[in-house]
């Protein structure tokens, strides 16, 4: 799986949110999916996932949160 025309942009309507743009291709370069013409909001996508998915990634995210808290770099 590869990305083409990939980019991230801040969501102008939702502070802290990001929008993912680009095409998802196979190794032959064929487009097999896209993030949509208007991109995909991370926040919007997140809330559509099931609880187990959200729990698993929250666990990983908590480690990074902890690192930043300990380092004093967390807001």
């Amino acid at each position: 799986m590869n990305f083409q025309n990939y980019r991230l942009e801040p969501n102008p309507n939702t502070p802290g949110d990001w929008i993912v743009f680009g095409d998802i291709t196979d190794d032959a370069g064929n487009i097999i999916a896209t993030f949509g013409e208007n991109g995909t909001s991370v926040f919007g996508w997140w809330v559509t996932q099931d609880a187990q998915f959200q729990r698993n990634y929250s666990t990983q995210f908590s480690v990074i949160m902890a690192q930043e808290i300990v380092a004093g770099t967390a807001e």
């Binding site: 799986m1 590869n2 990305f3 990939y6 190794d27 032959a28």
Partner: peptide
């Protein structure tokens, strides 16, 4: 990798 190439063209000499 989960995503092999991002904004980089594929090439016949490279394999996954």
């Amino acid at each position: 990798c989960q995503t092999n190439l991002s904004n980089v063209a594929t090439d016949a000499t490279t394999i996954t």
